[in-house]
Write a protein that binds this DNA or RNA. Sequence first.
DNA 1: AACATCTTCAACCGCAGACGG
DNA 2: ACCGTCTGCGGTTGAAGATGT
Length: 247
Amino acid sequence: MGRSPCCEKAHTNKGAWTKEEDDRLISYIRAHGEGCWRSLPKAAGLLRCGKSCRLRWINYLRPDLKRGNFTEEEDELIIKLHSLLGNKWSLIAGRLPGRTDNEIKNYWNTHIRRKLLNRGIDPATHRPLNEAATTVATSTATATNISFVKQEQETSSSNGVKGSMMLERCPDLNLELTISPPRQQQQQQTEKSLCFVCSLGLLNSKDCSCNAANTPTVNNTPSAAYDFLGLKMKTKGVWDCTTLEMK
DNA sequence: AACATCTTCAACCGCAGACGG
DNA sequence: ACCGTCTGCGGTTGAAGATGT
């Protein structure tokens, strides 16, 4: 016996959404807010499964969505984030306001993959194609090849903080990623506004407009370089993703 | 004009993790 | 600790439109 279906499939619509269904969903969520997707269709008078409603709202109807073409800056940011995170589309989307994971995933598969291939770069490993062909053992940049190290930490009953934190190791990039809710204190530290160029880690670039390179150094590294896409460097060459916000 | 092929992207599916009883 | 339910994620599909022959 498998798990129970997410909804009663016999009486649910599938396929493209109609204008009327969209309107019903929008007005229901405006009145009651997001969440309780399982019960939402019935409450909203929709013959859809909850998952379908959630997807329609998240990917298409949300008012804060940015429609239209991706900019060159967004392209480069996606490429950079993908090299760091692999196919973690939701994490990547969290760094691109107004864009959804589904949209970015589609865009990656239809545009950016080809763009990288044209540049002679393997989209899976972000290495030159000829090199990637000869280094099978080290093609570990993708999420499928990332080795996950789960580190159990003690649960603190006094502050209610959950004790489990996941560390991802990406040997290819020598990165240590820790995912957790954003911390206000760290956010304040990293909120020093960097220009887009520096946020990509391209310190000392002639295109830099925030002059971050003139900031003090730590461990012989300019501290502005610590803010790569808002990530803080824990130790040399290791980025801390505690400030990486989920959607 | 008609058909074939390619491209795009909204939507679906199955799985895994989180959570509560 | 276990189990059932719910939610969110990533891979995949397929309809519709665009382009080529």
